[in-house]
Amino acid sequence: MAVLEVKDISKSFDEEQIINHISIELHEGEIVSLLGVSGGGKTTLFNIIAGLSLPDEGSVWIDNEDVTGKPGNVSYMLQKDLLLPYRTILDNVALPLMIRGMKKKEAREKAAPYFAEFGLDGTEKKYPAQLSGGMKQRAALLRTYLFSKKVALLDEPFSALDMLTKQSMHEWYLDVMEKIKLSTLFITHDIDEAVLLSDRIYLLTGKPGEITKEIAIRELKSRTQDFKLTEEFLQYKKEILNHLSGEETI
């Protein structure tokens, strides 16, 4: 069953079309990547799915309900962790619960048990400035998860991290996803990241941005970094690279 359906979305700014007839489907428990170059309309699409801006055409559906232009249904996470510097990690993570009207104490009690699962033990009472970049992104993902266990929208969540941290975050991410099975739309410009983490990949190319290819990654779900060294991985990567260079029109 599709948890998230993006139907035929187009959007222009100042007479310039940014994205053109984009349709995406995300099934329950799936991790789907949207891969494309920077400035290709990924963020525009992202804001539309999050309900922060309206499309010119098309609609966004969650659980068969039209949520076009309605915020509060999809949670998202960005490259910037957006943790509030004046709140402890526990209070940052519990924020979405409080926004939904839960009392502070109750929200904290509800958020606390997830810290172990997300590898955040012992950070509850710390402030964001005391945490490393990787740990901050972990907290940001937990906040995203606590907001909505249905659909998460991740916009280049690991691209600000250095290579080694990024690698360990990928392992951590696959591990956590195994446990929480959060349906995720993952926006990225990193081909390796997309192949490693997703079940399916949409390629967004051209100007205006269109989805020109869809690739299913048929490997086993329990992947590790080793997957990146296999023949299959390289095959996927080649397929994507070929498609991207073939599509290049600018």
Binding site: P71, K80, P96, R100
Partner: peptide
């Protein structure tokens, strides 16, 4: 911060 405000708006 605009991004933080947007995030809260997206949370409803």
């Amino acid at each position: 911060d605009k991004d933080s405000m947007n995030m809260l708006r997206a949370m409803g």
